[in-house]
Write a protein that binds this DNA or RNA. Structure first.
Lengths: 162, 162
DNA sequence: GATATATGCGCATATTTATGCGAGATCATT
DNA sequence: AATGATCTCGCATAAATATGCGCATATATC
């Protein structure tokens, strides 16, 4: 059952966790580790996932870029300020915050330096976050959920594709 | 004419420079760039060089880890304090400094976080720098020379192999 | 200088990684 | 519910990367 059955972002999250624990020597070894954890995936997918995640390959194996790990904390600090989260097309995520907190949230998102985020602008109680693709956006939503320990339910507004 | 005909460190230096300008998409492209600059090398060598240099492969191509670039400046600042430089076996580099400056130099070397350096200790006018191998040591010497814009002539003391 | 040991490198090739393509799958629109 | 646009993913395979081996050269020791 392919397609955006959220399985992808969960798997990528799992990969991030694995990499955080220890670098992975090869993609095959990652596949095996994933299988152990109940995921089904092939080397192909892992290859694509790693690109998407922004992982780097060092002499010691695949690892997360330093910023990727750090980002979570930035966000966690402003978790309480988040109110709502809506997608407006695949390239724009609209985040509602407590009034007056948008700037702070936008700043936190900036500091995360996540590859999914192209850029942010914060108004008063709204942050616009630009994403490169629908996939990146989905991913981002999962990551925000993860970092804020909150389950965001995404009510898509009309998906005006373009 | 293979072997430690210092060609290796020079080539690795060239690779570092290339990577500093822009990431390299593939090793083949690096080989070509090297050839353009008058080097002779195969993909095999470049593969080994990259490992040695500590380069990482990102989605954008091969690049130097941030520290690698930064290190040079650290060292440049203490360049004047260096007096002499001798190897004592493949694993130990003995650096003479102005009196009282050894600590400072050792600190700078630490901060470089170069992969060639296993560790440093600074006394009063002498720094001991541990290297993992003869190759690493040669490499290190070139890099120090490069960073300090100085040509160190290495009088080896007896090379007690072991 | 002769011998022993360690090292650099290219070649050929094994191993690993990336990708074109087609098959489901989902969702918006009509 | 049919149509179409857009995704994800696995397969097969192309492309890229790593490495065992052997020669040539350098270095150490005698």
């Amino acid at each position: 059952m392919p397609n955006s059955s959220e399985g992808q972002s969960v798997r990528r999250d799992a990969i991030r966790q694995l990499l955080q624990k220890r670098p992975a020597a090869t993609q095959k070894s990652l596949v095996e580790a994933l299988v152990e954890r109940g995921f089904v995936a092939t080397q192909s997918s892992v290859s694509r996932d790693l690109r998407e995640i922004g992982a780097i390959k060092t002499a010691g194996g695949y690892a997360l870029p330093r910023a990727a790990a750090a980002g979570d904390e930035e966000l966690a600090q402003v978790a309480d300020l988040l109110v709502d989260l809506k997608s407006a097309g695949p390239n724009l995520l609209v985040i509602r915050t407590e009034t007056g907190a948008a700037q702070r949230v936008a700043l936190a998102l900036d500091r995360c330096k996540w590859p999914e985020i192209v850029g942010n602008v914060g108004g008063d109680d709204t942050v616009f976050t630009a994403t490169a693709s629908a996939a990146a956006q989905r991913n981002l939503i999962t990551r925000i959920g993860h970092a804020t320990s909150r389950h965001w339910q995404l009510l898509h507004t009309h998906r005006s594709q373009m």
